[in-house]
Write a protein that binds this DNA or RNA. Structure first.
Lengths: 362, 362
DNA sequence: GTGAAAGCGCTAACAG
DNA sequence: CTGTTAGCGCTTTCAC
């Protein structure tokens, strides 16, 4: 029913030429008489022809589609990256398909991923904050051009990313300049190198200022708001509590802010809070969150460019590209208070305004 | 280099059977000896076989992939829908591919869309807050199972969506009960029926309460935060200003809140603000935003179910499914203040804390 | 229960 | 410049 599919054959018949000529005319390659080409193109346009990708990819030729493999579409950072990649891809007159390999770390080794790998895409951009090494090894084995974007684990695959260590050091120095001496750090999960690098920057800056690193000031988190809340509660209620908290990402910083309030403290007067990522909400809250902005647009563009290089076989000279991140000062940091760290009463179990992260059964 | 692709042939040779048998064994269809099947499956697993979708779709058989066509990946609502759809699809052991038809309303009629239509997906979920009628007509022509999710225009295609009118009426009645008599409404863009329906609910509730609709209280917006700010400024600085503002979505409500503050007014004491959508940020701001929550999970599941029906040819008995939305009361609404609407000084051009929407050149 | 043949829409390679 | 042949990996149809 409805419209029958338009194939090269349809056009060939209507134009009175062979299928091959139509193919060449439409793809702009091979020698075709200008006149023929024009005619064929006109008919194709009229009929609303769009090439059957499946057939194209079966022949192993380029599909002009690049794929994104992502496993967390909820993340503001990732959505920004995807937006930027979309733009870049579009400017190249290519198409973009996103494969959401939701689920856990070990997900989609053969499912889905396999499908995409099987030729649909010319290349793949990986935006995987949680990727397992097993999965990564599989990708290394494959003969598909691939670039890791912003999230990585040790690998030989090319990586394009924003700076973490330098910016984290800058954050820490900023806090030091404000007179803070006990600065807490809330780490993220270890599935990506991001948190470690940020922590390293924090530690380097402290050491650079001649301040010993106190393990009691480093709390574990998982990049989720809730974990930031809990980590901050732990930090703030301990003896000799920090006067500033640096969270490895904005979400956790928000949780930390919740905790500060739940502890009856003021932000930034009593406790300064800094995040990382500069997600849109960081600018929207009051007071605005001091944080770090990664140049996601530049990262995305570069990643696409890198991928294109791999696709065209000009296999990488540069295996790792890093763009410096930038400190964004807002109102969540202030001069360190005079008080020595006094022990604080722990708040009620679930802090007001704290949103529980959705937990999925299964 | 690296791993050569594993095809049915590879497996057939290794198993000492024909390609056909392998195909049947793997797909579970057709009669195959249990023994053969087990053997074939074992080899397939061992070799890490994953079927070449391209070939599959070329034969027009089902690919077990469903596609999402979306044109705004920045939207929190849409991301929530996509998350829910992902889950539903996964539970069905199918795969999901997202096609981001960014750009304008008239975009992707033949590009991209065409590709997906050409068989990659068994069916398409459309999450298109901005879709043109032209585009919609094209889709209607196509012989591909399609379901519109949450956003729609007049069409014969099936639609699964959350309620708008009833919930908007509930919001309005809530404000009326708080004593508000002059309630402003900020409309969204007209590309989807959502804004109109929400406005209708607002008007119905007012009329139901015997209050005449004042066109001066209805301001145009485009669902963006900035437009909410501007619309609210206009409402608040006019003579006989409203004591409550109902924005057609949360983003605009946030803009309205910025405006309330920029005008030197307090929220909710001087002006109550209500949004629509219950995006995560609505719960995160202080005071929390009273808004409406659409049952996105239910909507998404139903949409997938509807789509599956179409795919299996059981063409729809039900063309429109609607799930009731729910009023979420938080702290942005309060009893109407005593003051008569006094004229307010307009704020400085760009309100503090207002984030300009990114404008893309080209 | 299994296999052989044909063909999906397209393009690379080689004629003409 | 244009046409012919062959074949990508798979499934459908029909044979054994």
């Amino acid at each position: 029913m409805k419209t029958p599919p338009v194939t090269l054959i349809t056009i060939a018949e209507k134009a009175g030429v062979s299928v091959m000529t139509v193919s060449r005319a439409l793809n702009g390659e091979g020698a075709v008489a200008e006149k023929t080409r024009a005619k064929v193109r006109a008919i194709a346009a009229e009929l609303g022809y769009s090439p059957n990708l499946s057939a194209k990819m079966m022949k192993g030729s380029r599909t002009n589609v690049i794929g994104i493999l992502v496993n967390d579409l909820q993340s503001a950072v990732i959505n920004e990256i995807i937006g930027a990649v979309s733009g870049a891809v579009r400017r190249l007159e290519m198409d973009l398909v996103i494969y959401n390999s939701i689920g856990g770390v070990d997900d989609a080794p053969n499912r889905g991923l396999g499908h995409m790998l099987q030729g649909l895409c010319d290349g793949l951009l990986l935006i995987l904050p949680r990727i397992s090494d097993v999965h990564l090894r599989q990708l290394e084995q494959r003969d598909l051009p691939v670039v890791l974007v912003n999230y990585w684990r040790p690998t030989q695959l090319p990586v394009v990313r924003g700076g973490n260590g330098d910016a984290a050091a800058a954050v820490t120095r900023h806090l030091l300049q404000l007179g803070h001496r006990r600065i807490g750090f809330i780490a993220g999960s270890a599935f990506t190198g991001q948190s470690q690098e940020r922590q390293r920057g924090y530690e380097d800056a402290l050491e650079g200022a001649g301040i010993a690193i106190d393990p009691a000031l480093i709390a574990p988190g998982d990049f989720g708001r809730r974990s930031g809340y809990e980590a901050a509660c732990a930090l703030l209620t301990a003896a000799d509590a920090p006067t500033a908290i640096f969270a490895a990402n904005d979400e956790m910083a928000f949780g930390a802010i919740d905790a500060v309030r739940a502890c009856g403290l003021r932000m930034p007067q009593d406790v300064s809070v800094v995040g990382f990522d500069d997600i849109p909400a960081a600018a929207h809250v009051h007071p605005g969150l001091t944080t770090v902005r990664q140049p996601l647009a530049a990262i995305s563009e570069a990643a696409v460019r890198e991928l294109l290089l791999r696709i065209s076989g000009a296999g990488g000279e540069q295996q790792r590209v890093e763009f410096p991140s930038e400190l964004v000062l807002r109102e969540s940091t202030a001069k360190a208070p005079r008080r020595a760290g006094t022990a604080i009463q722990p708040p009620a179990p679930a802090g007001a305004g704290t949103r529980k992260r959705a937990t999925r059964k299964g």
